Amino acid sequence: IEEVKKIVSEIQSKQLTRITINGNTYQVNSPEELVEYVRKVFS
């Protein structure tokens, strides 16, 4: 979970619009959307 928080804060600070998780690239339009992807991947 700490690793996830680190990734999320990194993305928020860079305002990235794409994230790659487990080889899948997602278009991310908002931090909320990012959190949803993270929940799916780590749930």
Score class of each variant (00 low, 15 high):
Ile1Cys: 12
Ile1Phe: 13
Ile1Lys: 09
Ile1Pro: 14
Ile1Ser: 12
Ile1Leu: 15
Ile1Thr: 12
Ile1Glu: 14
Glu2Phe: 10
Glu2Gly: 08
Glu2Met: 10
Glu2Gln: 08
Glu2Thr: 08
Glu2Ile: 14
Glu2Lys: 06
Glu2Trp: 12
Glu2Arg: 07
Glu2His: 08
Glu2Ala: 12
Glu3Lys: 11
Glu3Thr: 12
Glu3Phe: 15
Glu3Asn: 11
Glu3Leu: 14
Glu3Gln: 11
Glu3Pro: 04
Glu3His: 10
Glu3Gly: 06
Glu3Arg: 10
Glu3Ser: 12
Glu3Cys: 15
Glu3Trp: 15
Val4Ala: 09
Val4Leu: 15
Val4Pro: 04
Val4His: 06
Val4Met: 14
Val4Thr: 03
Val4Arg: 03
Val4Phe: 15
Lys5Gly: 11
Lys5Thr: 12
Lys5Met: 14
Lys5Pro: 04
Lys5Asp: 15
Lys6Phe: 11
Lys6Arg: 12
Lys6His: 08
Lys6Ala: 11
Lys6Cys: 11
Lys6Met: 09
Lys6Trp: 13
Lys6Val: 10
Lys6Asp: 07
Lys6Glu: 07
Ile7Pro: 00
Ile7Ser: 01
Ile7Ala: 06
Ile7Val: 08
Ile7Asp: 09
Ile7Phe: 07
Ile7Gly: 01
Ile7Tyr: 10
Ile7Gln: 02
Ile7Leu: 13
Val8Lys: 02
Val8Trp: 05
Val8Asn: 01
Val8Ser: 02
Val8Ala: 04
Val8Glu: 04
Val8His: 01
Val8Tyr: 04
Val8Gly: 01
Val8Leu: 13
Val8Phe: 07
Ser9Leu: 15
Ser9Tyr: 14
Ser9Trp: 14
Ser9Met: 15
Ser9Lys: 13
Glu10Arg: 14
Glu10Asp: 08
Glu10Ala: 07
Glu10His: 10
Glu10Pro: 01
Glu10Gln: 06
Glu10Gly: 03
Glu10Thr: 06
Glu10Lys: 05
Glu10Phe: 10
Ile11Tyr: 02
Ile11Trp: 02
Ile11Glu: 01
Ile11Pro: 02
Ile11Asp: 02
Ile11Gly: 02
Ile11Arg: 04
Ile11Leu: 03
Ile11Gln: 01
Ile11Ser: 01
Gln12Phe: 15
Gln12Thr: 11
Gln12Tyr: 14
Gln12Leu: 15
Gln12Ser: 07
Gln12Ala: 07
Gln12Pro: 02
Gln12Gly: 04
Gln12Asn: 08
Gln12Cys: 14
Ser13Pro: 01
Ser13Phe: 12
Ser13Arg: 12
Ser13Ala: 12
Ser13Glu: 13
Ser13Ile: 10
Ser13Tyr: 07
Ser13Met: 12
Ser13Asn: 11
Ser13Val: 08
Ser13Gln: 13
Ser13Gly: 08
Lys14Asp: 03
Lys14Pro: 09
Lys14Gln: 10
Lys14Tyr: 07
Lys14His: 08
Lys14Ser: 09
Lys14Gly: 09
Lys14Asn: 09
Gln15Arg: 11
Gln15Val: 04
Gln15Asp: 03
Gln15Pro: 02
Gln15His: 10
Gln15Leu: 09
Gln15Phe: 08
Gln15Trp: 08
Gln15Met: 10
Gln15Lys: 13
Gln15Ser: 09
Gln15Tyr: 07
Gln15Thr: 03
Gln15Glu: 05
Leu16Ser: 03
Leu16Glu: 05
Leu16Ile: 04
Leu16Ala: 03
Leu16Tyr: 05
Leu16Asp: 01
Leu16Gln: 03
Leu16Thr: 03
Leu16Cys: 13
Thr17Asp: 04
Thr17Gly: 02
Thr17Arg: 04
Thr17Tyr: 08
Thr17Phe: 08
Thr17Ala: 04
Thr17His: 06
Thr17Trp: 05
Arg18Asp: 04
Arg18Val: 14
Arg18Met: 14
Arg18Pro: 01
Arg18Gly: 05
Arg18Phe: 09
Arg18Trp: 12
Arg18Cys: 14
Arg18Gln: 12
Arg18Leu: 10
Arg18Thr: 12
Ile19Arg: 00
Ile19Ala: 02
Ile19Asp: 00
Ile19Glu: 00
Ile19Met: 04
Ile19Phe: 06
Ile19Tyr: 07
Ile19Gly: 03
Thr20Gly: 00
Thr20Lys: 05
Thr20Val: 10
Thr20Tyr: 05
Thr20Gln: 05
Thr20Asn: 06
Thr20Phe: 07
Thr20Leu: 05
Thr20Arg: 04
Thr20His: 06
Thr20Ala: 07
Thr20Pro: 01
Thr20Trp: 05
Ile21Arg: 01
Ile21Tyr: 03
Ile21Val: 06
Ile21Asp: 00
Ile21Pro: 00
Ile21Cys: 12
Ile21Trp: 05
Ile21Lys: 00
Ile21His: 02
Ile21Gly: 00
Ile21Ser: 01
Asn22Ala: 08
Asn22His: 09
Asn22Arg: 09
Asn22Glu: 05
Asn22Leu: 09
Asn22Asp: 09
Asn22Gly: 08
Asn22Trp: 09
Asn22Ile: 06
Asn22Cys: 14
Asn22Met: 11
Gly23Cys: 04
Gly23Tyr: 02
Gly23Thr: 02
Gly23Met: 03
Gly23Gln: 02
Gly23Lys: 01
Gly23Val: 02
Asn24Gly: 03
Asn24Phe: 14
Asn24Thr: 15
Asn24Ile: 15
Asn24Cys: 14
Asn24Leu: 15
Asn24Ala: 10
Asn24Val: 15
Asn24Met: 13
Thr25Ala: 05
Thr25Phe: 09
Thr25Gly: 02
Thr25Arg: 04
Thr25Tyr: 09
Thr25Trp: 06
Thr25Asn: 04
Thr25Pro: 03
Thr25Val: 11
Thr25Ile: 10
Thr25Glu: 09
Thr25Ser: 10
Tyr26Trp: 14
Tyr26Ile: 14
Tyr26Gln: 02
Tyr26Thr: 06
Tyr26Asp: 07
Tyr26Val: 11
Tyr26Asn: 01
Tyr26Leu: 10
Tyr26His: 05
Gln27Met: 09
Gln27Val: 15
Gln27Lys: 10
Gln27Leu: 09
Gln27Arg: 06
Gln27Tyr: 08
Gln27Asp: 08
Gln27Gly: 04
Gln27His: 08
Gln27Ile: 11
Val28Tyr: 15
Val28Phe: 15
Val28Cys: 15
Val28Arg: 15
Val28Ala: 15
Val28Gly: 15
Val28Ser: 15
Asn29Cys: 11
Asn29Ile: 05
Asn29Met: 07
Asn29Val: 06
Asn29Thr: 07
Asn29Asp: 12
Asn29Ala: 10
Ser30Thr: 13
Ser30Tyr: 05
Ser30Asp: 06
Ser30His: 05
Ser30Gln: 02
Ser30Met: 04
Ser30Phe: 06
Ser30Ile: 05
Pro31Trp: 15
Pro31His: 06
Pro31Tyr: 09
Pro31Gly: 01
Pro31Val: 12
Pro31Lys: 01
Pro31Glu: 01
Pro31Asp: 03
Pro31Met: 11
Pro31Asn: 02
Pro31Arg: 01
Pro31Thr: 10
Glu32Cys: 04
Glu32Gln: 09
Glu32Ile: 05
Glu32Arg: 04
Glu32His: 06
Glu32Ala: 08
Glu32Ser: 07
Glu32Asn: 08
Glu32Met: 08
Glu33Asn: 03
Glu33Ser: 03
Glu33Asp: 06
Glu33Thr: 03
Glu33Tyr: 03
Glu33Met: 05
Glu33His: 04
Glu33Arg: 03
Glu33Lys: 05
Leu34Lys: 00
Leu34Pro: 00
Leu34Arg: 00
Leu34Trp: 04
Leu34Val: 03
Leu34Asp: 00
Val35Lys: 01
Val35Phe: 04
Val35Arg: 01
Val35His: 02
Val35Ala: 08
Val35Glu: 07
Val35Leu: 07
Val35Asn: 01
Val35Met: 09
Val35Gln: 03
Glu36Ser: 06
Glu36His: 08
Glu36Arg: 04
Glu36Ala: 08
Glu36Gly: 03
Glu36Thr: 04
Glu36Tyr: 04
Glu36Trp: 06
Tyr37Ile: 15
Tyr37Thr: 13
Tyr37Lys: 08
Tyr37His: 11
Tyr37Asp: 01
Tyr37Asn: 02
Tyr37Gly: 01
Tyr37Leu: 15
Val38Thr: 01
Val38Pro: 00
Val38Glu: 00
Val38Cys: 00
Val38Arg: 00
Val38Lys: 00
Val38Gly: 03
Val38Asp: 01
Val38Tyr: 01
Val38Leu: 08
Arg39Glu: 09
Arg39Lys: 12
Arg39Leu: 15
Arg39Ala: 05
Arg39Ile: 14
Arg39Trp: 15
Arg39Asp: 03
Lys40Asn: 08
Lys40Val: 05
Lys40Cys: 13
Lys40Gly: 08
Lys40Gln: 10
Lys40Phe: 12
Lys40Tyr: 12
Val41Phe: 13
Val41Ser: 05
Val41Ala: 14
Val41Thr: 06
Val41Met: 14
Val41Trp: 12
Val41Lys: 05
Val41Tyr: 13
Val41Arg: 04
Phe42Ser: 04
Phe42Met: 08
Phe42Trp: 07
Phe42Asn: 02
Phe42Ala: 02
Phe42Thr: 03
Phe42Tyr: 11
Phe42Cys: 10
Phe42Asp: 00
Phe42Glu: 02
Phe42His: 03
Phe42Arg: 01
Ser43Pro: 04
Ser43Glu: 12
Ser43Arg: 07
Ser43Asp: 10
Ser43Cys: 15
Ser43Thr: 08
Ser43His: 11
Ser43Ile: 09
Ser43Gly: 11
